[in-house]
């Protein structure tokens, strides 16, 4: 073994998984087993969405050859309630580098599955759709703010004592609308999306300033309008 290899291995042997990692995977696997039938139906739905996207891009004359370097395209994404245009530059299959007008940079990638469970890489516009359909929960000062597309809600008082929060976004254009936020890292929360509500959870509607008081009838909304719901703290 040469000296470079020895040095490299000594350095990277300092990296270890968290102690509770196996238990977390075991818990997730348990959930996977429970949701297996539902996920099969998700694959079929995702395939339909992706199929439609490919047709649209083809008609527009854009090229998204999966592994060709240097393809750049501008895509609009919602970022903390603001729509910003980002430059997506395909570097490798399924991986895109991004840069917005303010010089913020980073990378994003994603995949989905066809009806047979085969993996398919997303292109830039499909990735933008995924980003736009994902609500985010961020810490802003000492407050917690839920962002979804052009909407923002102060949900500080809705986060439960154990740090979790269950959210439901009612958006006719997005089927994955139940989000369970469960962990905070730095200034944002992570979570996962689902098509069905968490068992035993009662959701209350939010307005732009927070929670609608219990018992107050939800205001009449226009057809197709996006609405947000979540649980109150401690419930």
């Amino acid at each position: 073994m040469n000296k470079n290899t020895q040095r490299y291995q000594r350095s990277f042997q300092n990296l270890h998984l968290s102690e509770d990692f196996p238990e977390r995977v075991e818990a997730q696997l348990g959930k996977e087993r429970k949701d297996k039938e539902m996920k099969i139906s998700n694959f079929a739905r995702a395939a339909a969405v992706i199929g439609a996207c490919v047709v649209t891009l083809g008609a527009g004359g854009l090229c998204y050859a999966a592994d060709v370097c240097g393809i750049r395209t501008q895509v609009g994404v919602w970022l903390n309630g603001q729509k910003v245009m980002v430059e997506a530059d395909s570097e490798e299959r399924g991986a895109f580098n991004w840069e917005d007008a303010n010089g913020n940079t980073g990378a994003y990638g994603g995949n989905t599955f066809d009806e047979n469970g085969n993996e398919m890489w997303l292109n830039a516009e499909e990735l933008a759709e995924v980003i736009n359909n994902d609500p985010s929960l961020r810490k802003v000062g000492d407050r917690a703010v839920l962002y979804y597309k052009n909407l923002s809600f102060d949900v500080t008082d809705q986060i439960r004592e154990d740090g979790t929060m269950y959210v439901h976004i009612e958006d006719p254009l997005n089927p994955y609308t139940y989000i369970n936020f469960d962990e905070i890292a730095e200034d944002h929360y992570s979570g996962w999306t689902d098509e069905v509500p968490e068992e035993g959870i009662e959701y209350y509607e939010l307005d732009a300033t927070g929670l609608t008081p219990e018992g107050t009838p939800a205001p009449k909304r226009q057809e197709g309008e996006i609405r947000a719901f979540c649980v109150t703290a401690g419930k």
Binding site: S11, N14, L15, L79, E92, G94, A95, W98, N104, T105, G106, A107, Y108, G109, G110, N111, W121, V130, I131, D134, S136, R138, A185, E186, D187, H188, S190
Partner: peptide
């Protein structure tokens, strides 16, 4: 590569703190 996590929520502080915690 595919991890579904928005890049703009990350910052270098977390990287530095984590690296400092590794105890080389």
């Amino acid at each position: 590569k595919s991890i579904r996590r928005t890049f703009w929520n990350r910052n270098r502080t977390s990287y530095e703190e984590y690296m400092d915690s590794l105890g080389f």
